[in-house]
């Protein structure tokens, strides 16, 4: 029955929340009746291949779910469901966080916060309209091609359906985590590419103060610019893959182990090349702890903090890489270990 549960889960995914239980219960009952009848006819329990064939006849889960929705004016019901899903992801998980994290702070830091917020809101609205337009256009083209193919969703394989998510043991990657990874990777890449070596510190820009970054940061950013950028974008790509394949737990774990190991290596090499700066930062922190920040250059404190952050990143990423590698090895023997943590 595992195959049938996987099928019902796939149908449920595309249904409106308030109708999911009712529709799935009825569909489940029908499929059970079909299986029982076939078993009675065969005089034995059905094999997985036979159940798979029965589900294949029942139809692609996306198409089956789409049949429960009213035909829209522009799109096929099944396509309309995907359209709504994509629009929701783009608006709620991409544009809204971008607006909150990027546009609003920039607006508040401008000389006229009200006009700044208005400007940010209008540019965000423009982006939303543009994104909606592009998405709609793509879906209309797909719908047109689909109509040409007489609504055929092509061959599909019930055996490739994701395993059933069992509540509480985390055997599937939550969608919210994958979406957060996509957004985080993109935000990191944007921050990493635009960060200049000499940055005005946000709160001090009004006073004209500037922070000149220390050599360890300049070296870290310059030397590892491309690898870190690739890691950020790869993180987004992995998030997108896990969104489509939420059961690829080992794939995500492998990527995390590898990326953490790479970050640990990069930070270690940078720290090794800047021992003097590390010692200076340690000395400065001792001084501040003992005497307070009296007569200390603020930029020096910021740079010491940057050195310490790089050290913390090294320790955290090395520990994570080790833990994830151990989990990968254990999960090779005991797959249930993947669900933990």
């Amino acid at each position: 029955m595992d195959l049938m549960d996987r099928y019902l889960q796939a149908v449920r995914f595309w249904l409106p929340k308030d109708k999911q239980d009712d529709i799935v219960a009825e569909l489940s009952e029908d499929l059970r009746c079909q299986i029982e009848e076939a078993e009675a006819k065969a005089g034995r329990p059905l094999q997985d291949a036979e159940i798979g064939e029965l589900l294949r006849k029942a139809g692609n889960p996306l198409k089956v779910a789409g049949q429960y929705l009213a035909q829209g004016p522009l799109l096929d019901p099944a396509l309309a469901m995907i359209f709504r899903f994509v629009v929701k992801v783009v608006l709620v998980w991409v544009l809204l966080p971008l607006f909150i994290l990027v546009s609003l702070p920039a607006a508040f830091m401008s000389r006229h916060p009200f006009t700044g917020v208005l400007g940010a809101a209008s540019s965000c609205a423009f982006s939303a309209i543009f994104a909606l337009g592009c998405i709609t256009l793509v879906f209309l083209l797909v719908n047109h091609a689909q109509a040409g193919a007489a609504g055929d969703w092509g061959p599909w394989d019930p055996f490739k359906l994701p395993p059933v998510a069992r509540k509480g043991n985390g055997r599937l990657i939550p969608r919210s985590q994958s979406i957060a990874e996509i957004i985080f990777g993109l935000l990191f890449a944007a921050w990493w590419t635009e960060i200049p070596v000499r940055l005005p510190v946000a709160w001090s820009s009004q006073w004209g103060a500037m922070w000149a970054s220390g050599t360890i940061w300049t070296d870290f950013h310059g030397r590892w610019f491309v690898p870190m950028l690739v890691l950020g974008l790869a993180g987004s790509a992995v998030g997108a893959i896990c969104l489509a394949r939420p059961h690829w737990l080992r794939f995500r774990l492998s990527y995390r182990a590898l990326s953490n190991a790479l970050v640990a290596a990069m930070t270690y090499l940078t720290i090794s090349a800047h021992r003097a700066e590390l010692d200076a930062a340690r000395g400065l922190m001792h001084h501040v702890a003992g005497h307070g920040a009296v007569a200390v250059d603020p930029a020096g404190i910021v740079n010491a903090a940057v050195v310490l952050i790089i050290v913390i990143i090294f320790v955290a990423s090395a520990a994570s890489a080790l833990a994830q590698t151990i989990r990968l090895i254990i999960s090779g023997r005991y797959p249930a270990a993947l669900g933990r943590g």
Binding site: L27, L31, A58, G59, V64
Partner: peptide, 8 residues
């Protein structure tokens, strides 16, 4: 009639 047509 298939289930995907009848139940809706």
């Amino acid at each position: 009639v298939d289930e995907g047509t009848l139940y809706p």
